[in-house]
Amino acid sequence: MSILETKLGPVIFRNPILLASGIVGFGEEYRELIDLERVGGIVTKSISLLPRPGNKPPRIVETPCGMLNSIGLENPGLERFLTEKKQFLETLKTNVVISIAGSSIEDYVEITRAIEPLDFFSVLEINISCPNVREGGILFGKDPHLTESVVSRIRAVSGKELWVKLTPNVTDIGLIARVAEEAGADALALVNTFEGMAIDINTGKPKLGNVIGGLSGPAIKPLAIKKIWDVYQAVNIPIVGMGGICCWQDIVEFMLAGAQLVQIGSALFANPKLPIIAIPKLEEFVVGKGLNSLNEIVGKVIID
């Protein structure tokens, strides 16, 4: 067993680095830039029941040490995912996590049922935290009752590993985390982006076509780590941590806070090779610290 290998439920990850949803689409475009089979897994763009055209441009604005996006879940929808996008994923020799998003609980259930028979993926990531769509998305992740409903309804129809992706835009993330755990989540993925806004002082208009968006990148790293630490103390299921990871040291920091796996998002835009560069560095870290496995550091922040 490799010193970076880790297991969540029945799923084995060759290392704890996954590529986050919304960053690599359905994988195909990135295959020219990075060996996708060296990472622990990739998370697809969230699939909705029907195609979504996405939000009015501009959709991307750079902000200090990060970026705002308001893509609005532009995706081809379930049907075209099944006919056009899944073929490439089927050939990938790494874990595929399918992310789904709905405007209603029925949407989530219908997509789950439709993809449940596919055997090339082992994990379903339920996106209840997109800040950029009007109906659904983040509403499910901000209200504990809706979180409970959507997770338990999906649990009832899916035997896959269920990860629930949480929004940090709540007062008590520990509460939502516990609700998701009790409703049957196998792990929690956090954080999605922080709601943000930027205004052009010359035109007086918002810089994003959608007015508001989600903030990601190194700017949110300390905020994300705090949320992971909060959730680590609130639940007993594993955490998949993300939010501004830019280097191997950040991965260690997220793991110390309680994440067993991590996802790399926006930093991949700046450096698609980041995950591949981080792998040997993490191995060196494990050896240097005299550990048997990187897994041993999960949640081991030392608080005197």
């Binding site: 690599v24 689409g25 475009e29 990135y30 055209p53 441009p57 991307i60 604005v61 893509i71 835009f269």
Partner: peptide, 22 residues
Amino acid sequence: EENMACGIGACYGCSLKTKDGY
């Protein structure tokens, strides 16, 4: 021209309105 993130077609950040949609 549009602000870009991935630059290779994966993230849909640089979409532009055309007569055939984004």
